[in-house]
Computed example of a mutant assay.
Amino acid sequence: MRAKKWMILLFYLLLLFEFIYMGYSKLMNNNNSWVFWGVLSIAAVYQIISFLIKKKDESWNSGYVIADHRIIRQILVSLALSFVFILVFLVIGTVGLYTGFIVGNPINVMVAAIIFSVLVFMVSQIVQQFIN
């Protein structure tokens, strides 16, 4: 997949503004998680600056490869594994909530399903690196 330099820069800026907004809103709500969003904002600023330094000699409309078909195939396989895992986790959570085995808020089950599916995605990415 090829992308233009200005498209990637806009994506980085979008992430930066989102992190700043989340950090500011958490700060105004007296929530301590604003520190996390502040660290992510600093990381986004570093990413933007390093991107601009690396690509300063190229034109804004120059394109370059950010992913090839092999990487996209690996990511799709990992996403499929994560999707199956999240479906299984949510089915087990739904049955557990319905039968009374899991007591609590159903949102906790959904959040746990999302977190575990991200973990499965990361592990499957690592395993695929060793297989291929």
Rank of each mutant, 00 (worst) to 15 (best):
K5F: 06
L9C: 06
F11V: 13
L14E: 12
L15K: 14
F17I: 11
E18S: 13
Y21A: 05
Y21H: 15
M22D: 04
M22L: 14
G23Q: 01
S25H: 08
K26R: 11
K26E: 01
L27P: 00
N29R: 10
W37A: 00
W37Y: 07
V39I: 07
S41L: 02
S41E: 00
I42D: 02
I42E: 03
A43E: 09
A43N: 15
A43C: 10
Q47A: 13
F51M: 01
F51A: 00
L52R: 03
I53M: 04
D57P: 06
E58K: 15
S59N: 14
W60K: 05
H69C: 15
H69N: 15
R70L: 12
I72L: 13
I75V: 15
I75E: 06
L76I: 12
A80W: 08
A80N: 04
L81I: 05
F83R: 00
V84E: 00
F85R: 02
I86A: 10
L87D: 05
F89W: 10
G93L: 00
Y98F: 07
T99W: 02
F101A: 05
P106T: 07
M110N: 05
V111Y: 14
A113D: 06
A113H: 08
A113V: 00
I115H: 01
F116L: 11
V118F: 10
L119D: 05
M122H: 07
Q125W: 13
V127Q: 15
Q128C: 10
Q128D: 04
Q128P: 02
N132K: 09
